[in-house]
Design a protein around this nucleic acid. Sequence first.
DNA 1: ATGGTCGGGCGCCGA
Length: 256
Amino acid sequence: MKIASWNVNSLNVRQPHLEEWLKMRQPDVVCLQETKLEDHKFPDDALLELGYRSAFVGQKTYNGVAILARHKIDDVLTDVPDFADEQRRVIAATVNGVRIINLYVVNGQDVGTDKYEYKLRWLEAVTRWIADEKAKHGKVVVNGDFNIAPDDRDVHDPETWNDSHILTSAAERGALQRLLDLGFHDAFRLKHDDAGVFSWWDYRAAAYRRNLGLRIDLNLVSDALRDVVTDAGIDREPRDWERPSDHAPAWVDLAL
DNA sequence: ATGGTCGGGCGCCGA
């Protein structure tokens, strides 16, 4: 079972990329972020023709998340209980006996801003909710654009991306750690120790050409799935295509 | 790398 996470930065623009990539890699489940589409504009018919069912929740201009799957999609949830939020950043569903959670974590702009405080509050609420999901379902994969790089191996320049910088600050990494402490594992790190494998490169300053990136797109597997992870990685190929998203897909393979 | 680029949608915000 191949499960992927991809921030497409507008599904309207990236639909051809998504379709090409689905044909190439044949993933079983894909979690999309930043679809930026209202629900009535979601291309579910076109995706069904490629063999993918979809569950989605979106809004105009910002955010928007979706789960695509070759299997049936059950028990879809699009709101974090007891956390009122107009921003469409979360969707969860059960596919093939695995609880799939898809997060578009708040970016946070800069340390100390209102958006940063919202990011930390949001992560706290989401972590509480995921604890319940894990207790209920056991086999859980949390996929998403986390907007947090776990450690120094995941940034091109640890001097800049330090404990007081957005995406790497101590409070953000602490919030990610509290999620991991529920009994989750960064699938990529179960299989690979290397530094310099990134999933996001800023559009500005030719960052991709110079590989000035961060690994902020993650697949976290629950304890119950740890031993069935066969591999994980980042597929850089779509980042080389014309008019790419600034993110590349992060994937995990499970022997299920 | 305090922004040199994108996307959305028409002036400028968000990433």
